[in-house]
Amino acid sequence: MSTLERVVEALAGISHTVQKPRDGAVAIEIEASVVPQALAALRDRAGFDTNVFVTAIDRYPAEPRFTVCYSFLSTAHNDRVRVQARIPGEKPHIATITHLWPGTAYSERECYDMFGIVFDGHTGLKRLLMPQGYDHHPLRKDFPHQGIEPDRLYREWDQRRRDRSPLRSESEA
């Protein structure tokens, strides 16, 4: 039984479309609302025991703007599957899958950090790479590469540090 047949069999009853990506991998697209059921079926019925990555693609200004990509690996069957789900750009959110694969916690946090996609049900969803308190989501296409006020958080910290320093008043008088 080929990988695609196994995947399609596992997803019986869940609407999906089979994609034909450039690298010849098995890839399917599903509705964002059925992500937990579909992925649970892939794990339990098709034997995909390892998550490889969770990421997103920003297709700004097209709508639906974000594509959330999941990639899974089956160590028993030695094959992979990619799953995609599209979500709109306005208040993007999708259900978490950390209860199925605990290893997706950081990937989802990174996705939230970089794209602002909220993963419903994720315990401890906060920024992973950028500092807490950062205003923007850098990997969105409408965010410039050089950033917007990249030093703001540091300057604020620096000001607090200098305000606290008792040595300042002496030398600045």
Partner: peptide
């Protein structure tokens, strides 16, 4: 690294 997260020279701090 002319990017949003990198200090453009350590002499800024």
């Amino acid at each position: 690294y002319d990017s949003y997260s990198v200090v453009q020279g350590v002499d800024m701090i």
